[in-house]
């Protein structure tokens, strides 16, 4: 999650995820011989375990549904999401759900279902773009720090410490104040704030992987740094990152919601779940269903990423193997 640091980050001594050790040993020979085949085998194994985790699969199903809705929004939405279709109809605004408007209409007579469908696009965009920014920055600096060590490591990790010193809410508010409101700036703020954790996890993974014999062998054979990082270290060190990134997507969706509440997110009239929730919140008393619509959508999608992330962690964690 980007909005709070994961407990794991606080655990002194847990810096190097030990759980990669046996995993690597087990697959080492295989990886050396037939890397592609080995990796496929690993992921086939992970997928097998994931498939038997009901909650993770539920999460995955929600995510697939969310992405499909976002992709095909124009075909699914019954109305234009910003057209105030019912504004001049007597009693047309804040209608309860009906056959004509499945989820009712909002305070400006717009179709809530259509807004919800289009709003999913913003959530998907924020999730993907923000986490992509964190990943690019985090992996780059994490790799630099972990692989080369020395002063590069010190400088990068001290900068990461500075980022850790800011609770994310404070950091995001500060950045958004400088950049101004808007979706692009939400991407940047959330993305930039997320790099430090990824860099730290990745650096830890690299440190634990790089002393392995096959990496040393590759080095002895004269492979370039980037080749070693990409071909030898990455496939193994990436696993905890995948788990973290999955959860971060949920965090980013949530962050968009509270930034919108502060008036800093996606600007109206373009619907996002965050600005819909903020807009419908005042009607909690007279038209309570309104706030539950975007609210539920946010909770479900964030939940989906958490469940999938959990499932992935369990599936990737070999110590749990056999217990499922």
């Amino acid at each position: 999650m980007t909005d709070r640091k994961r407990p794991e980050d606080y655990l002194p001594g847990k810096e190097q995820p030990e759980f990669l050790g046996p995993e690597v040993e087990e697959f080492e020979a295989e990886l050396e011989k037939e890397r592609v085949h080995g990796r496929t085998a690993l992921w086939r194994d992970v997928w097998y375990r994931l498939r038997h985790n009901k909650m993770a699969m539920a999460g995955l199903a929600i995510i697939v549904f969310l992405v499909l809705v976002a992709l095909f929004a124009p075909f699914l939405a019954p109305y234009d999401p910003i057209e105030q279709v019912e504004i001049r109809t007597p009693g047309g605004v804040k209608q309860p759900p009906s056959g004509k408007h499945w989820l009712g209409t909002d305070d400006l007579g717009r179709d809530i279902l259509s807004r919800l469908i289009y709003g999913s696009r913003i959530s998907v965009e924020v999730g993907i773009v923000a986490v992509a920014i964190s990943l690019v920055l985090g992996l780059f600096f994490g790799a630099l720090a972990g692989y080369f060590g020395g002063w590069a490591d010190s400088v990068i990790m001290r900068s990461a410490d500075v980022f850790f010193a800011f609770p994310t809410v404070l950091g995001a508010i500060a950045i958004m104040t400088v950049l101004g409101p808007g979706l692009i700036n939400v991407f940047i703020a959330i993305g930039v704030l997320g790099w430090a954790t990824i860099a730290r996890i990745f650096r830890g993974s690299i440190l634990s992987v790089k002393e392995n014999e096959y990496v040393e062998a590759a080095r002895a054979l004269g492979a370039t740094h980037s080749r070693i990082i990409w071909r030898h270290i990455m496939p193994n060190a990436i696993q905890p990152i995948i788990v973290y990134a999955t959860m971060s997507v949920g965090g980013a969706i949530l962050a968009e919601a509270w930034l919108a509440f502060l008036g800093l997110g996606q600007q109206p009239p373009t619907p996002s779940w965050g600005n819909m929730l903020a807009e419908y919140l005042p009607f909690y008393n007279t038209h309570p269903w309104m706030m539950f619509i975007p609210g539920t959508a946010i909770v479900l999608s964030v939940l989906a990423f958490i469940l999938l992330g959990d499932g992935l962690r369990d599936a990737l964690d070999p110590r749990l193997r056999g217990s499922i």
Binding site: G250, L254, W258, L277, L281, G295, V299, V302, I306
Partner: peptide, 13 residues
């Protein structure tokens, strides 16, 4: 999981 997934201001309201 649901608690973590809820916007805090919504919980508050």
């Amino acid at each position: 999981s649901v608690l973590v997934a809820m916007p805090i201001y919504w919980i508050g309201r």
